[in-house]
Structure formats: structure tokens, C-alpha cells
């Protein structure tokens, strides 16, 4: 079974998983902004970037990955029309 057909089967069977992943995307977008940290805090550095920048970029990469998974699923709301 190819990876894409495995993903399709997984998503077809589990609507809750799709909804959970959609919510996870929005959660990641919210936590990418460091509102939960005191402004002015001196950060640690990863790859030359402050930790809050590295965390934001990681969140955005994860959002795009989840987004890709969700779009790769077979559209079950309507049959392909053409």
C-alpha cells in the first residue's frame, strides 16, 4: 500500500481525526505567537535564532505538513465531478 493510499484510508475512516488535525493547526497558529511569555524576556538561541522565532517557524512547518495531509485525503463530500 502506498503512503498516499494509506493516508486516504486513515482519513476516510476517521472523521474525528480530521477534525482534531484541523483544530491542531489552529492551536499551532495561536501558540506560534509568544503571548504566554513575558515581553522583553531574553531568549535562548537555536541556529542563531531566538527560541521564540525557532518555535514559531516549527509551528508553521507543522501547520503546513498537517494541511498537506488533510488535502491529500480523498474528498468524501462529493464525488469527483469531472
Amino acid at each position: 500500500m502506498s503512503l498516499s493510499s494509506f493516508i486516504q484510508r486513515l482519513f476516510m475512516k476517521n472523521k474525528t481525526l480530521r477534525t482534531a488535525l484541523q483544530l491542531l493547526m489552529f492551536f499551532l497558529l495561536i501558540i506560534s505567537v509568544p503571548w504566554y511569555r513575558p515581553p522583553g524576556t531574553e531568549p535562548k538561541f537555536y541556529l542563531g535564532m531566538p527560541d521564540w522565532v525557532a518555535l514559531a517557524l516549527t509551528c508553521y512547518a507543522l501547520v503546513i505538513f498537517i494541511n498537506l495531509l488533510l488535502w491529500l485525503r480523498k474528498d468524501e463530500q462529493g464525488k469527483p465531478t469531472r
Binding site: V33, P34, G48
Partner: peptide
């Protein structure tokens, strides 16, 4: 490399290194 690039930004734009203030965070969101 990425680390050297990040370090130079930290040196030349030090005001953008710390966790941003609330007005910047609101702008971001």
C-alpha cells in the same frame, strides 16, 4: 550558515531579539 546569519541579525537588530511586546504580538496575531 544559518547560525552566523542569525547572529548577525541579533547584533544589528538587537531590539528584535527579546520576546516581542504585547503590541507587536497583537499585530502578529
Amino acid at each position: 550558515g544559518f547560525t552566523a546569519l542569525g547572529n548577525s541579525v541579533s547584533q544589528l537588530r538587537p531590539e528584535t531579539v527579546a520576546v516581542p511586546d504585547s503590541s507587536m504580538q497583537i499585530r502578529w496575531l
